[in-house]
């Protein structure tokens, strides 16, 4: 029996290290097919653009878009726009974590705090962050402050909610076991509750960033001036520069994708996936 259990564990370990050949072949096939589909889609677009039945300014050809993208990357303007946007989104996201995680924990640990904040949070949640942009523009003017506050507003709620439910759903058995092994309140919190709630907290960070990314692009469209990816797109509309728009869209998509996959993906792989806690994170 022990033998069987050990082999079982071995395959379990191998899964993480070397993907088996069948799986790799399948993923290669997926990549090839994806390339074909995307190639076809691009070709169709190019064909429509080249027929000239629509104005070039509205439907630029792919080489035009690529040229614009490269020009903007080379003269540094795209970099500046991205830096402005990243600064705003990361600042707001950081604030949301600083406020959301402790508040979520306090709500889960103390009934009084929960009773006070839960109704407020539930009432504010359904108000889209964008509805507050005009109000915050009045209060804080146009520029960084307003966009950062909007990002903060959008990103805080998922952070609070996920932390709150994460701490509440820490397996009571772990608390008992740790208590029996002599963990005091302080150690219980740092060594059991925080890691136990981490799948939810990471999910919260993921959702928060997604919200923040959406919010920053939207907020920049009307509440920023001169810099920012959202601002570029909206500004390009005035001048009928569809190539700049599409080039910026590509950059927006790329940065969002990079954060999702690289930052949060590796965070997850390093923690909850390694611990086999992914399932509880999804529920």
């Amino acid at each position: 029996m022990t033998m069987i259990a050990q082999t079982g564990a071995n395959t379990g370990l191998q899964d993480g290290k070397t993907p088996d050949p069948a799986k790799r072949a399948a993923s290669w096939r997926a990549i090839r097919r994806a390339a074909i589909t995307i190639g076809l889609a691009l070709a169709t677009y190019e064909l429509i653009a080249r027929t000239g039945s629509f104005p070039r300014a509205l439907l630029p050809t792919i080489p035009m878009i690529v040229r614009t993208l490269f020009a903007m990357l080379l003269d540094g303007s795209m970099l500046m726009h991205s830096m402005y946007t990243l600064y705003r989104v990361l600042f707001g996201f950081f604030l949301a974590m600083v406020v959301g995680i402790p508040l979520g924990i306090l709500m889960a640990r103390f009934r009084r705090v929960e009773q006070f904040f839960l109704p407020l949070v539930s009432a504010l949640m359904p108000i889209p962050s964008f509805a507050l942009v005009p109000l915050f523009m009045l209060w804080f003017g146009i520029g960084n402050l307003t966009t950062i506050i909007i990002v903060f507003y959008a990103a805080t709620f998922p952070m609070i909610f996920n932390t709150w439910s994460g701490v509440r759903s820490v397996n009571p058995l772990w608390l008992r076991a740790a208590g029996a092994m002599g963990a005091d309140e302080h150690k219980l919190f740092w060594k059991v509750i925080i890691p136990g709630a981490s799948p939810f907290i990471i999910t919260g960070m993921r959702q928060s960033f997604l919200r923040a990314w959406i919010a920053v692009v939207g907020a920049e469209m009307i509440a920023a001036s001169n810099w920012g990816l959202g601002w570029v797109i909206f500004d390009a509309k005035e001048f009928l520069n569809a190539d700049i728009m599409l080039a910026s869209l590509a950059v927006i998509g790329f940065i969002g994708f990079a954060f999702e996959r690289l930052v949060f993906g590796s965070l997850e792989r390093g923690t909850v996936m390694r611990w086999g806690m992914m399932r509880s994170a999804k529920s």
Binding site: I214, V217, L249
Partner: peptide, 12 residues
Amino acid sequence: IPGLAYAPLFLL
């Protein structure tokens, strides 16, 4: 891509 980023394109 955030949905709102498509807005200017759609308006155009």
